[in-house]
Design a protein around this nucleic acid. Structure first.
Length: 562
RNA sequence: UGGGGAUUGGUCUAGUGGUAGGACAGCGGACUCUGGAUCCGUUGGCCCAGGUUCGAAUCCUGGAUCCCCAGCCA
């Protein structure tokens, strides 16, 4: 019997597994699965399920299958299976040779259905969808039995065979389980097992024109694969009696279904429908838009697989409906990138600075540390010259008390370079806008410290104007302004809380070391945040950076309280 | 007047009859050539009402609130 390594807190699912292992329920075996329907892109909520299922398998020395639940050919596409495979792999999980499809089991499912018909537990119903709905009753009123419910077994067998043979039109007949039309659980009121769909399936082509429904298929898939713990989300709790019923009636291997609460994240939406709407109505630029909570969006935004896995383990697993603060996700990516991302200097809202006493035409190189968290990452040279760019935010003509960056007469440190003092502010006469600063530098402070021991309160980043390379920098912010965009008042739409400033594009001036950087590479722009090279739109000629996350900004906090 | 599930600080989450703990967020401080990072400190919680018990977040009874279910979707 295996038990998980200590460290992470034990959630209710792992408690169940521990108990099963103690009693020998599955002979100590642990086998899970991640069963996406290939009808859309994976999002961070799926990552929770992926990490849970693959994580549990790994901890207990078990296995986890990747299985596409492709029982509805009208909604599923190959494009999605490819993206899902790419995303799960990118997250770092491995299903080895266990890539399965529900459609692999269509023949066996069919045989099981025949078995149920023969046992008098299933029947072909000629009622229309509308009639079936009416017969089902309501949440409080019991349902009524179909007049076709008590057809002889032989007739059911014949009709089912003809359904399969393609004799009937879509929607004209279904195969139903014969359970209990008076059950308080709607799922047990003779649920549909097969519907007629003359549709081409992405894997089985035109072999079938009847397709199994989720409730009928899913337990069979789990059973066939020898799954021990079939982990799904809370909304399937009501379906468990049906899951159990099918397996019991068939007398086949019976996995245990366990339900947990799906992930909700503040300031975003998670349902496939809403995400699709964002894409289709052009609020974002595709499924992998860096503002999307999709795996592909997060990847493009600059999130690492490690940070997402870490996030998933920190949020825990329980049955309470919950909404995780997006700040935790941001914390996880900052934590990872802080340790691993090389530092670099770049100016996003440039202000010209002329060092009056620095010789014209002179250039020198100063040493800069690549990552103070990791000395092994070494140092690099950064060009310094007479004309620089600094961040507009780092200068205030009339600074508040707590502001300790550059201001008239004020001395600050240029990171890794020199102390400079602002001696003159040049403004546009008409607009009163500051257009450039004249400063003097102290040659004695090369490298950033003064031999006389004097201190400066501020250190600012900069880039040599003559050496800087230009790049497009996309400053992403949360997609919604509402903490729970899904919680709309009557008549409202979740689009109404879209953040109009979720994307701002600026031209940045970056140190030239970035010139050859590869798509996807991640950096910290000192004092600004983490950025990565966009893997879609960036090219060596025209670099495009995405802001993954800002650095924590305690000045902004102070300033907001002024 | 149907069924299923849930309820612990702002947000997540441990706790399984014996001092309510952790993470994120917040606040305060130390340190700092990133107002970053790091470190230290700190505010704040058991849905309610009864009951059992020496002792209840935990057990019992009743109530409240929230979520899910009436697809030939998954």
């Amino acid at each position: 019997m295996t038990t998980p390594e200590s460290g992470a807190p034990i959630d209710f699912i792992r408690n169940i597994i521990n108990e099963d292992n103690r009693t020998g329920k599955h002979g100590g075996r642990v086998h899970t699965r991640f069963p996406p329907e290939p009808n859309g892109y994976l999002h961070i909520g799926h990552a929770k399920s992926i990490c849970l299922n693959f994580g549990i398998a790994a901890e207990y020395g078990g296995l986890c299958n990747l299985r596409f639940d492709d029982t509805n050919p009208t909604k599923e596409e190959e494009e999605y299976v490819e993206s899902i495979i790419e995303d799960v792999r990118w997250l770092g999980l491995d299903w080895e040779d266990r890539l399965f499809y529900a459609s692999d089991y269509f023949d066996q499912m069919h045989d099981y259905a025949v078995q149920l018909i023969q046992a008098g537990k299933a029947y072909v119903d000629d009622l229309s969808a509308e009639e079936i709905r009416k017969h089902r009753g309501t949440l409080i009123d019991r349902g009524r039995e179909s007049i076709y419910r008590n057809r002889p077994v032989e007739e059911n067998l014949d009709l089912f065979a003809r359904m399969r043979a393609g004799e009937f039109k879509d929607g004209s007949r279904v195969l139903r389980a014969k359970i209990d039309m008076t059950s308080p659980n709607l799922n047990m009121r003779d649920p549909v097992m097969y519907r007629i769909l003359h549709a081409e399936h992405h894997r089985t082509g035109n072999k079938w024109c009847i397709y199994p429904m989720y409730d009928w298929a899913h337990g069979l898939e789990d059973s066939i694969e020898g799954i021990t713990h079939s982990i799904c989300t809370l909304e399937f709790e009501d379906h468990r009696p049906l899951y159990d019923w099918f397996l019991d009636e068939l007398g086949v291997y019976h996995p245990q279904q366990i339900e947990f609460a799906r992930l909700n994240l503040s300031y975003t939406v998670m349902s496939k429908r809403k995400l699709l709407q964002l894409v289709e109505q052009g609020y974002v630029n595709g499924w992998d838009d860096p503002r999307m909570p999709t795996i592909s969006g997060l990847r493009r935004r600059g999130y690492t697989p490690e940070s997402i896995r870490n996030f998933c383990s920190r949020i825990g697993v329980a049955k309470t409906d919950s909404t995780i603060d997006v700040a935790l996700l941001e914390h996880c990516i900052r934590e990872d990138l802080n340790r691993h991302a090389p530092r670099v200097m770049g100016v996003l809202r440039p202000l010209h600075v002329i060092i009056d006493n620095y010789p014209e035409g002179q250039t020198e190189e100063v040493d800069a540390v690549n990552n103070p968290e990791d000395p092994d990452m070494g140092t690099r040279k950064v060009h310094f010259s007479r004309v620089l760019y600094i961040e507009r935010d780092d200068f205030r003509e009339d600074p508040p008390k707590q502001f300790f960056r550059l201001a008239p007469g004020r001395e600050v440190r240029l990171r890794y370079a020199y102390f400079i003092t602002c001696v003159e502010v040049v403004k546009d006469e008409r607009t009163d806008e500051v257009v450039e600063l004249h400063c003097t530098y102290d040659p004695e402070t090369r490298g950033g410290s003064a031999p006389d021991g004097r201190k400066v309160k501020g250190t600012i980043h900069w880039v040599s104007a003559a050496h800087a390379i230009e790049a497009e920098v996309r400053l992403y912010d949360r997609l919604f302004t509402a903490e729970n965009p899904g919680d709309v008042r009557e008549g409202g739409d979740f689009e109404r809380s879209l953040n109009p400033d979720s994307l701002e594009t600026v031209r940045g001036y970056l140190e030239p070391s970035l010139a050859g950087a590869a798509p996807g590479s991640r950096y910290q722009f000192e004092r600004l945040g983490y950025f990565c090279i966009d893997s879609r739109d960036s090219s060596p000629e025209r670099l495009v950076f995405n802001r993954t996350a800002t650095l924590r900004d305690s000045w902004a906090k102070i300033e907001s309280k002024l």
